[in-house]
Design a binder for these strands. Structure first.
Lengths: 145, 145
DNA sequence: TGTTAATAGTTGATTTTGTAACTAACAACC
DNA sequence: GGTTGTTAGTTACAAAATCAACTATTAACA
């Protein structure tokens, strides 16, 4: 018979991952929220454009796995606030290329600095081995499907 | 000058953790949603009561770090559906002890089996070292504050 | 061509969450 | 014992996420 009474919620990976993800997002969330009034979806879109450059909403969706309605709304809000602009493709008028404005790049660079500092801080609390294994395993899990 | 252009979103811990957490929650989420119409907050409360036994909403809050309004609503829904019952403390009438009903325990046992099987499957895709390091590090990160 | 299917992105209705203010009960202390 | 402060839990309202249906455009192909 199976032993069930020793099940520990704190060892159940989906639960544990969620706790760690929430806790580790908190401090950074405070920054993009307070400084730019952004939501999580919005800084994600901002970062995708900042890092990978001009791309469509579809592209962002494929890279981030965010649902297209989330992206659509995040893009709309970022455009409203002049963090990005949209240009229709001449050949296929369903496509819109998104690109950061000067304002958007400034915000991106600012948040990038914060992100790097924060990531360094998190990394510093782990050993070299822990850092390596952690990231490698997380990437594996993220791709699981 | 700081090198910024090599920043990789896929290495930024809060982002990476979130992706892994979401992906790893998905399959399990499907089960408690489809079988019992539960939300994440609800299976969490169910599991707390299933594992640790009779306790108050406050206790659940301290263990899970969920906000008390989430817990309040999850408890209300679980009570409505007869998964748990509430008993007021005689001495301190602000306190309510929560306990799984027979139906609740049945659901718990069922989901526990699913959770264990799923966790085993996830663990099986990692080496012993990866499993150990991962859980240890996640616990560390979850406590960070 | 004309018809049907597919794709990029948006909108609307509903559900869920977050924040703050609230009620009810107890505790502390003069 | 009355005032003030705390605590457990709920509720109300605003913000955000979800899901399905929608528009506009392009592709496929008979």
């Amino acid at each position: 018979m199976m032993e069930k009474d020793d099940f520990d919620l704190q060892n159940f990976l989906p639960y544990l991952l969620n706790q760690a993800a929430e806790e580790s997002s908190l401090a950074f969330q405070q920054v993009y929220k307070d400084r730019y009034g952004m939501l999580r979806t919005e800084w994600r879109v901002l970062f995708h454009l900042g890092i990978y450059g001009r791309m469509t909403a579809k592209d962002i969706g494929q890279r981030s796995k965010m649902h297209k309605t989330k992206i659509s709304r995040a893009v709309a809000r970022l455009a409203e606030r002049r963090f990005l602009n949209r240009q229709q493709d001449d050949k296929d008028r369903r496509l819109e290329y998104l690109e950061l404005t000067h304002l958007g790049r400034t915000a991106y660079r600012d948040l990038l600095t914060v992100a790097q500092t924060y990531d360094d801080k998190l990394s510093a609390s782990l050993t070299t081995e822990e850092n390596e294994v952690l990231r490698q395993v997380l990437r594996k899990l993220a791709k699981m499907g």
